[in-house]
């Protein structure tokens, strides 16, 4: 499985799908996050592999 982590929340998706599909499947707006794997930024066309841990970094700030 592939794990997505956004702040304190974890999501699991099946390997083989694109990062964009994984985000949409979990109702995460691609425009509101950046995604890293092993500390490196990756783009949303990346195909997710079994065992991947994708850390999502929220872009929105303010008040």
């Amino acid at each position: 499985m592939v794990k997505l982590i956004l702040r304190n929340q974890e999501y699991e998706v099946r390997p083989g799908m694109t990062l964009l599909d994984a985000l949409k499947k979990n109702d995460i707006l691609p425009e509101a996050v950046l995604c890293t794997r092993d500390g490196e930024l990756i783009t949303e066309d990346e195909i997710l592999k079994d065992g991947d841990v994708i850390k999502l970094i929220a872009a929105i700030s303010g008040g």
Partner: peptide, 18 residues
């Protein structure tokens, strides 16, 4: 800022952007 109007508007605009 948690739950602020400006963050809510940003979320709406990001939905539109998506």
């Amino acid at each position: 800022s948690i739950g602020s109007t400006s963050i809510y508007y940003k979320q709406i605009l990001n939905k539109l952007e998506s």
